[in-house]
Every structure is written in structure tokens, then in C-alpha cells.
């Protein structure tokens, strides 16, 4: 009876079990959650998500958060989230131990247009934790290498210590037809890489603007400049996609919080093409 109610009501979280917590940086953690099997011991799970989608994660008695799914879409037996600890709910979430339960609703929202990306170069541009919702794109491209053109990953973080998935970044850079460039705001003495905002990396990339699709996620100010520079480099606005963020309570389109002009970020987004976002990005306090 209870399980039935939970499956039909999109507002009721389902308890998922924490399988692993990995510390990525001083304040950012990656949680692997295991869903309850549809039938116990059947090994059948109902997890499917599109790269770019998010879940609502509920911390018992504390609060609920919209968190992008950062794992491999091919791995159906788990959901992976990368969370930066900034408040009470995220702090409690990243302090979870293996076996603890986290409430999950979703997945919600639109994904990155992977269908449209087939046969084209995929340009991934991330700022900070904005790499999390883009990692499923990277997995998808690398698992299905023949379907896509070149993969370019441009990643900006505040400092070398704030770079997420460092070992994976190195591994991805060794894959064929893959270019990975990272930059930081503050390098320090041991950093021999790029320093500067993520748009400064464009000059190292051989873009094929008419054969590329660009996916960007990061602070809004970063995405505005990234989209502008991509356009300058010849990408059409409709081939640039951004992952937007607003306050969210329900993820179902009726709490009203995530409105962005006429759009509800939760159900119309979070992924939007730049041609739809451009007029809105220019509006301060929209």
C-alpha cells in the first residue's frame, strides 16, 4: 500500500540506499545511491535518466534539494550525484554513511540533446560543479565513440584544488578524438596549466562551428560569456545549450519558484538552447 502510494505520487520521495561517498574536493562529494529493486532480489531497477536531468534529494527531517545526476547513464543499478556542501541540507547529505537512506524523487527535466549531437563534435564547457551534469554526456560519448565526432571538454574551476573528477579528466584526455583543457582562477606555485576564465581556452580549440554542438553549465555569468564567445566563433545559437538554475521546491511545475520568464526551469528545462535563453539572460532580476 505504502509502496504503491510512493510510486504514483510524484511528491513522495523513495528511500534509496547510500552505496558510496567519495570526497572530490574539500567541500564537494560524490554520492552513489542504490534504488530499491522493483522486485526484491530480481535485480531489475527502473532507473533511466537522460544526461542533464536532475533528481530531488530529500534529507530526512532537514530538506530537499534539486541535484543533477552526474553518473553514467548506462549504469542502471545506481544514481550518482555530486554535491557541494554549502548549507544544512547539503552538509547532512554529504555526511551520509554507507547504508543510510536518502529520499529520491525524479528524474526530472529535459536532458542534453544527445540525439541531435550524433555525428557532430561535442563541446562540453563547465564551470565549477557545473561539470557534474555534463559528466553523463562525457560517459555517453566515450561509450558510443562511433556515434559522435570529436569530444572537447573545457573546464574552469576556482583553483587546482577545486577541480572535480581529476583522475577522470586525465583519463579522458588520453581517449582518442578527445581534448581536455582545464583552467583555474588562481593557480598557485604548483600549477603549470592555464589561468583565467574558461572562455580563455577557446583559442586552444580547433572548432568546427557548423559541425558542433556545445553544452555549457556553470555560473550564469560564465554561461553568458561562453555563449557569446561560441557565437563569435561561428556556432549558431540553436546549437548552443545551457543548463539553467533557479530555486525549486516541487520539480513538477507548480510550486512557481523556478520561473524564468515564461519558462519553468524544472519541467521546460533545465537544458535550454541559447536562442531561447538569450533574450532572458539580458534581463537583470528577471
Amino acid at each position: 500500500m505504502m509502496a504503491t502510494a510512493a510510486t504514483v505520487d510524484p511528491m513522495l520521495p523513495q528511500p534509496y540506499s547510500v552505496r558510496q561517498v567519495v570526497k572530490e574536493t574539500s567541500d564537494t562529494f560524490t554520492l552513489t545511491l542504490e534504488p530499491p529493486a522493483l522486485e526484491p532480489s530480481s535485480g531489475v531497477y527502473r532507473n533511466r535518466f537522460q544526461p542533464g536531468q536532475f533528481s530531488m534529494l530529500w534529507v530526512f527531517g532537514v530538506g530537499e534539494l534539486p541535484i543533477s545526476i552526474s553518473g553514467d547513464p548506462a549504469a542502471r543499478d545506481r544514481l550518482v550525484y555530486t554535491v557541494r556542501s554549502v548549507g544544512q541540507a547539503t552538509q547532512t547529505l554529504v555526511s551520509c554513511e554507507v547504508g543510510d537512506a536518502v529520499g529520491v524523487r525524479g528524474p526530472f527535466g529535459t536532458g542534453w540533446p544527445m540525439q541531435q549531437a550524433q555525428g557532430r563534435d561535442v563541446i562540453v564547457i563547465a564551470g565549477g560543479i557545473g561539470l557534474a551534469p555534463l559528466r553523463p554526456v562525457i560517459y555517453e560519448v566515450l561509450h558510443n565513440r562511433e556515434k559522435y565526432g570529436r569530444l572537447v571538454i573545457l573546464y574552469g574551476a576556482r583553483s587546482p584544488h577545486d577541480l572535480l573528477y581529476r583522475r577522470e579528466l586525465t583519463a579522458w584526455a588520453r581517449q582518442r578524438e578527445t581534448q581536455v583543457l582545464a583552467t583555474v582562477d588562481y593557480g598557485g606555485l604548483n600549477w603549470h596549466g592555464n589561468v583565467g576564465v574558461v572562455t580563455t581556452l577557446f583559442k586552444y580549440v580547433r572548432l568546427q562551428p557548423t559541425r558542433s554542438l556545445a553544452f555549457a553549465c556553470g555560473p550564469e555569468i560564465m554561461m553568458r560569456f561562453v555563449a557569446r564567445d561560441l557565437e563569435t566563433n561561428g556556432l549558431a545559437r540553436e546549437n548552443i545549450y545551457l543548463s539553467m538554475e533557479r530555486n525549486m521546491k516541487c520539480a513538477l511545475g507548480f510550486c512557481g519558484h523556478c520561473q524564468y520568464g515564461p519558462h519553468f526551469i524544472c519541467k521546460d528545462g533545465p537544458i535550454f538552447s541559447y536562442d531561447r535563453m538569450r533574450p532572458l539572460l539580458e534581463k537583470y532580476e528577471l
Binding site: A5, A6, D9, M11, L12, P15, F60, A101
Partner: peptide, 16 residues
């Protein structure tokens, strides 16, 4: 009230 839940051990259950 959207839900009431009770923690038992590691997990919790939703009491609808």
C-alpha cells in the same frame, strides 16, 4: 502536510 515519515534504523518509511 505532504508526508509523514518515520526513521527506522538506516532507512525510513513514508506513512501516507
Amino acid at each position: 502536510r505532504l508526508l509523514t515519515a518515520e526513521r527506522s534504523g538506516h532507512t525510513f518509511r513514508i506513512l501516507n
